[in-house]
Amino acid sequence: MSSLHIDKHEKRWITISIALLAAFAVLIGVAGFALGVQVPTLDQKIDPTKLDQDPVWSNPGVRELVPGKKYEVYLIAQTWQFVPREIVVPAGAKVTFYVTSRDIQHGFKVLNTDLNVQVIPGYVGKLSYTFDEPGEYKFICTEYCGLGHAAMFGVIKVVPPEEYGK
């Protein structure tokens, strides 16, 4: 059996390539699993035709858990709108989003943040974010969902904590 012949420059090139990619792997792993820059996870599965009978999903919107500190947002994507369209939360609070679809696939992406989830009917995606700066953050549908897709968006109003609820 003849052995593998690799040119010495090529050997060096491959070694550098592997080292670089290994470094990338470590960096994204640390960012994800140690520093919490995380991808969305599954909250639960739910029949999209029964959202209206569910005590939580029949009334989507913002829930205050700890005033000024912890909030939950239940958001439904459907053709061709988000329910609710407007969300108000205070700056500096940890906001956990629960997102599902009533009909087909949609996308939920909040501009200028790393909030991004594929909205899949039957599945509730869970993702969190802390809005440090007050202001308006648009969220848009990023998955093709039919003729009205381009008009499907909403807005998160992040207000200074002292103005929240007034």
Partner: peptide
């Protein structure tokens, strides 16, 4: 992995 959050779709 997480850099994909910025650009998915």
């Amino acid at each position: 992995y997480n850099t994909n959050l910025i650009l998915h779709n």
